[in-house]
């Protein structure tokens, strides 16, 4: 190990690093993480399954009821068996992917949008706005979230739209908290002072200068949160306050199997398996994104 070769290697590494943009460096780090890439691939497959559900599912998830097959065990033509009404379980699970992803992605989108705007406002303007917003954040975080969701779903009447709205509108607090803290610390930096001194307006500073710098953690938090939201949706449907029958949601199907759990355990087993796979995929992707976007956080 001669010093000259090490120096050379270092120099070329530095040159190479300088050539690449922040994003392409992140992408390289992400690509090297096999578990995270695996998660991404599973998610892409699930998206395909959801988009082309009618092509993939062998039977209609609602209309095709097989007589005398209530709770029937898996067969060659029905690899996952039948649900409690004699419908093909595989088809119901494939269509359930749509519900899970719709709720997971749209609810997260709503929560992130509200959280970023509110958090940025609180962090940037400070004073009474910050006081007020911080107390609202505390309040939302203090509600046992299932209790809040159950009450809201009961009030608004359970449906897909309600589920998405309720989860999205109640879930923004943790995004707001992160954005608020980051904006507060960035506000004191020189580039913000510089922008201000040349007369850039407040919202433009937030939008152009601050938000791009806090998006990394928000993306990571959002990805890691999707799994939790999919579980929430299932829990809500499981309690009977999410997706209404006969629409196929994983949580609903799981609940359908509950009454006959000791006779037909497969009805609850397969939807739960789908939930676990999906949640794991999003968590792996989120962990990978964190490592890639913020190398300081890596352990």
């Amino acid at each position: 190990m001669t010093p000259s070769t090490t120096d050379e290697a270092n120099a070329s590494l530095i040159a190479e690093t300088a050539r690449r943009s922040e994003w392409s460096q992140s992408w390289r780090r992400f690509r090297a993480n096999r578990i995270a890439v695996g998660g991404l691939i599973v998610i892409l497959l699930l998206v395909l399954l959801a988009v082309f559900a009618p092509l993939f599912s062998p039977y209609d998830p609602i209309e095709d009821v097989f007589r005398g097959m209530r709770g029937g065990s898996p067969t060659a033509a029905h690899p996952f068996g039948f649900d409690h009404l004699g419908r093909d379980l595989l088809s119901r699970l494939i269509f359930g992917t749509r519900v899970a992803l719709l709720v997971g992605l749209i609810a997260t989108g709503i929560a992130v949008s509200i959280g970023v705007v509110v958090g940025a406002a609180a962090g940037f303007f400070g004073s009474w706005a910050d006081m007020l917003i911080s107390r609202v954040i505390d309040t939302l975080m203090a509600f046992p979230i299932i209790a809040l969701l159950v009450v809201l779903a009961a009030v608004l009447g359970p449906s897909l739209t309600t589920t998405i709205l309720v989860i999205g509108v109640t879930g923004w607090a943790r995004f707001a908290r992160v954005v608020r803290a980051d904006v507060m610390s960035l506000k004191a930096t020189d580039f913000v002072t510089a922008a201000r001194s040349v007369g850039v307006r407040d919202w433009r500073i937030i939008w152009r200068h601050l938000l791009p710098n806090v998006m990394g953690p928000v993306i990571v938090l959002a990805t890691l949160g999707i799994g939790g939201i999919i579980i929430l949706e299932s829990a809500l449907s499981f309690l009977g306050l999410g997706i209404r029958p006969p629409d196929p949601s994983w949580g609903r199907t799981l609940a359908d199997g509950r009454d006959s759990i000791l006779r037909y355990p497969h009805i609850s087993f397969f939807p739960g398996l789908m939930i676990v796979i999906t949640v794991l995929a999003f968590n792996f992707l989120g962990d990978g994104l964190r490592d890639a976007l913020d190398p300081r956080e890596r352990d």
Partner: peptide
């Protein structure tokens, strides 16, 4: 711990019952 976080508690409960 990765699995523990990803298992929905209602499903884990039903599977333990089975």
């Amino acid at each position: 711990s990765t699995l523990g976080v990803a298992l929905p508690n209602f499903w884990l409960g039903l599977m333990l019952i089975v």
